[in-house]
Protein backbone atom coordinates (compact mmCIF):
# COMPACT_ATOMS: atom_id res chain seq x y z
CA UNK A 1 0.00 0.00 0.00
CA UNK A 2 2.93 2.37 -0.60
CA UNK A 3 1.50 4.58 -3.28
CA UNK A 4 2.71 7.86 -1.87
CA UNK A 5 4.45 8.97 -5.03
CA UNK A 6 1.48 8.08 -7.25
CA UNK A 7 -0.81 9.94 -4.94
CA UNK A 8 1.61 12.88 -4.78
CA UNK A 9 1.81 13.11 -8.58
CA UNK A 10 -1.93 12.84 -8.92
CA UNK A 11 -2.45 15.77 -6.59
CA UNK A 12 0.35 17.71 -8.19
CA UNK A 13 -0.88 17.18 -11.75
CA UNK A 14 -4.42 18.10 -10.82
CA UNK A 15 -3.17 21.24 -9.03
CA UNK A 16 -4.98 20.27 -5.86
CA UNK A 17 -4.52 22.96 -3.26
CA UNK A 18 -6.44 21.26 -0.53
CA UNK A 19 -8.54 18.18 -0.08
CA UNK A 20 -10.41 17.15 3.05
CA UNK A 21 -13.02 14.56 3.88
CA UNK A 22 -14.46 14.38 7.34
CA UNK A 23 -16.61 16.17 9.84
CA UNK A 24 -16.35 19.95 9.57
CA UNK A 25 -15.74 21.23 13.08
CA UNK A 26 -14.79 24.70 14.20
CA UNK A 27 -11.13 23.63 14.44
CA UNK A 28 -11.19 22.13 10.97
CA UNK A 29 -12.63 25.36 9.56
CA UNK A 30 -9.76 27.38 11.06
CA UNK A 31 -7.25 24.87 9.81
CA UNK A 32 -8.62 24.73 6.26
CA UNK A 33 -8.68 28.54 6.09
CA UNK A 34 -5.08 28.71 7.35
CA UNK A 35 -3.88 26.16 4.83
CA UNK A 36 -5.70 27.86 1.94
CA UNK A 37 -4.36 31.25 2.97
CA UNK A 38 -0.78 29.98 3.30
CA UNK A 39 -0.86 28.21 -0.03
CA UNK A 40 -2.28 31.22 -1.86
CA UNK A 41 0.37 33.41 -0.21
CA UNK A 42 3.06 30.97 -1.26
CA UNK A 43 1.73 31.11 -4.83
CA UNK A 44 1.92 34.94 -4.64
CA UNK A 45 -1.74 35.20 -5.51
CA UNK A 46 -3.19 38.72 -5.73
CA UNK A 47 -4.82 40.10 -2.60
CA UNK A 48 -8.22 40.53 -4.18
CA UNK A 49 -8.33 36.93 -5.47
CA UNK A 50 -7.17 35.62 -2.09
CA UNK A 51 -9.91 37.58 -0.37
CA UNK A 52 -12.57 36.27 -2.74
CA UNK A 53 -11.47 32.68 -2.23
CA UNK A 54 -11.20 33.13 1.53
CA UNK A 55 -14.67 34.66 1.76
CA UNK A 56 -16.23 31.96 -0.38
CA UNK A 57 -14.49 29.24 1.62
CA UNK A 58 -15.75 30.68 4.90
CA UNK A 59 -19.35 30.57 3.66
CA UNK A 60 -19.01 27.07 2.19
CA UNK A 61 -17.36 25.64 5.31
CA UNK A 62 -19.84 27.24 7.65
CA UNK A 63 -22.71 25.94 5.56
CA UNK A 64 -21.33 22.45 5.97
CA UNK A 65 -20.76 23.09 9.68
CA UNK A 66 -24.33 24.22 10.29
CA UNK A 67 -26.30 22.01 7.94
CA UNK A 68 -24.82 18.52 7.82
CA UNK A 69 -26.83 15.99 9.77
CA UNK A 70 -25.86 12.80 11.47
CA UNK A 71 -27.68 9.52 11.25
CA UNK A 72 -28.89 9.82 7.67
CA UNK A 73 -27.35 6.51 6.64
CA UNK A 74 -26.94 3.51 8.89
CA UNK A 75 -23.38 2.84 10.08
CA UNK A 76 -22.01 5.93 8.40
CA UNK A 77 -21.01 9.30 9.81
CA UNK A 78 -23.16 11.44 7.54
CA UNK A 79 -21.74 14.61 9.07
CA UNK A 80 -18.66 13.76 7.09
CA UNK A 81 -18.32 16.11 4.11
CA UNK A 82 -15.92 16.79 1.31
CA UNK A 83 -14.05 19.96 0.48
CA UNK A 84 -11.73 20.20 -2.48
CA UNK A 85 -9.88 23.21 -3.87
CA UNK A 86 -7.92 23.06 -7.07
CA UNK A 87 -6.65 25.25 -9.83
CA UNK A 88 -7.51 24.55 -13.46
CA UNK A 89 -7.49 26.62 -16.66
CA UNK A 90 -7.20 30.04 -15.00
CA UNK A 91 -9.85 29.25 -12.41
CA UNK A 92 -9.72 28.35 -8.75
CA UNK A 93 -12.41 25.76 -8.09
CA UNK A 94 -14.07 25.04 -4.79
CA UNK A 95 -16.10 21.85 -4.58
CA UNK A 96 -18.07 20.70 -1.56
CA UNK A 97 -20.14 17.59 -1.00
CA UNK A 98 -22.42 16.56 1.81
CA UNK A 99 -25.36 14.30 2.55
CA UNK A 100 -28.77 15.89 2.52
CA UNK A 101 -32.32 14.70 3.15
CA UNK A 102 -34.26 14.48 -0.11
CA UNK A 103 -37.11 16.44 1.42
CA UNK A 104 -34.74 19.37 2.02
CA UNK A 105 -33.64 19.55 -1.60
CA UNK A 106 -36.48 21.56 -3.25
CA UNK A 107 -35.94 24.90 -1.42
CA UNK A 108 -32.17 24.72 -1.94
CA UNK A 109 -32.56 23.82 -5.58
CA UNK A 110 -35.02 26.66 -6.09
CA UNK A 111 -32.66 29.13 -4.43
CA UNK A 112 -29.71 28.01 -6.55
CA UNK A 113 -31.80 28.22 -9.73
CA UNK A 114 -32.84 31.75 -8.81
CA UNK A 115 -29.28 32.82 -7.98
CA UNK A 116 -28.02 31.47 -11.30
CA UNK A 117 -30.77 33.28 -13.21
CA UNK A 118 -29.92 36.71 -11.80
CA UNK A 119 -27.53 39.34 -13.10
CA UNK A 120 -24.86 40.97 -10.95
CA UNK A 121 -27.08 43.97 -10.19
CA UNK A 122 -30.10 41.80 -9.43
CA UNK A 123 -28.03 39.72 -7.02
CA UNK A 124 -26.86 42.91 -5.30
CA UNK A 125 -30.43 44.16 -4.93
CA UNK A 126 -31.63 40.82 -3.58
CA UNK A 127 -28.74 40.69 -1.12
CA UNK A 128 -29.55 44.18 0.18
CA UNK A 129 -33.22 43.33 0.49
CA UNK A 130 -32.55 40.21 2.58
CA UNK A 131 -29.86 41.97 4.62
CA UNK A 132 -32.28 44.73 5.49
CA UNK A 133 -35.44 42.74 6.07
CA UNK A 134 -34.76 39.31 7.46
CA UNK A 135 -34.66 38.52 11.13
CA UNK A 136 -31.52 37.39 12.88
CA UNK A 137 -31.70 33.68 13.65
CA UNK A 138 -29.95 32.00 16.55
CA UNK A 139 -27.53 30.45 14.10
CA UNK A 140 -26.95 33.91 12.70
CA UNK A 141 -27.46 32.71 9.17
CA UNK A 142 -29.58 35.08 7.19
CA UNK A 143 -29.92 33.06 4.01
CA UNK A 144 -27.30 35.31 2.52
CA UNK A 145 -24.48 32.78 2.21
CA UNK A 146 -25.12 31.44 -1.27
CA UNK A 147 -25.99 34.86 -2.68
CA UNK A 148 -22.77 36.23 -1.26
CA UNK A 149 -20.78 33.34 -2.73
CA UNK A 150 -22.31 33.99 -6.16
CA UNK A 151 -21.63 37.72 -5.93
CA UNK A 152 -18.02 37.22 -4.91
CA UNK A 153 -17.39 34.61 -7.57
CA UNK A 154 -19.15 36.35 -10.43
CA UNK A 155 -19.65 32.91 -11.98
CA UNK A 156 -22.60 30.53 -12.08
CA UNK A 157 -22.87 27.91 -9.36
CA UNK A 158 -22.70 24.29 -10.53
CA UNK A 159 -24.64 21.80 -8.43
CA UNK A 160 -26.05 18.35 -8.40
CA UNK A 161 -28.04 16.14 -6.03
CA UNK A 162 -26.82 12.59 -6.43
CA UNK A 163 -29.45 10.19 -5.20
CA UNK A 164 -28.18 7.69 -2.63
CA UNK A 165 -31.50 6.13 -1.57
CA UNK A 166 -35.16 7.06 -1.22
CA UNK A 167 -34.53 9.52 1.59
CA UNK A 168 -30.95 10.73 1.18
CA UNK A 169 -28.88 12.36 -1.57
CA UNK A 170 -25.36 13.72 -1.84
CA UNK A 171 -25.34 17.44 -2.50
CA UNK A 172 -22.51 18.52 -4.79
CA UNK A 173 -21.72 22.23 -5.02
CA UNK A 174 -19.04 23.91 -7.10
CA UNK A 175 -18.05 27.52 -7.46
CA UNK A 176 -15.20 29.07 -9.45
CA UNK A 177 -13.06 32.15 -9.05
CA UNK A 178 -11.25 33.52 -12.08
CA UNK A 179 -7.57 34.17 -11.50
Amino acid sequence: MLHAYDQFCKMKNKNIILSFKGEITSEIISMVLDVAENKLDAANEKGIIKKKIFNILVECLQNLYHHTEKGLIKNENTKSSLILIWYENEYYNILTGNYIRNKNIPPIQKRLETINSLSKDELRDWYRKILNNSEISAKGGANLGMIDVARKSGEKIEYNFKKINSSVSFYEFKIKVKK
Binding site: K51, V58, I136, G140, G141, A142, G145
Partner: peptide, 13 residues
Amino acid sequence: EYFNTSSSKFILE
Protein backbone atom coordinates in the same frame (compact mmCIF):
# COMPACT_ATOMS: atom_id res chain seq x y z
CA GLU B 1 -10.87 42.83 6.59
CA TYR B 2 -13.32 39.96 6.18
CA PHE B 3 -16.71 39.13 7.53
CA ASN B 4 -19.11 36.27 6.97
CA THR B 5 -22.78 36.64 6.09
CA SER B 6 -23.67 35.49 9.57
CA SER B 7 -21.93 38.59 10.97
CA SER B 8 -23.41 40.87 8.34
CA LYS B 9 -26.85 41.00 9.97
CA PHE B 10 -25.35 41.89 13.33
CA ILE B 11 -23.24 44.67 11.86
CA LEU B 12 -26.39 46.12 10.34
CA GLU B 13 -28.14 45.70 13.68
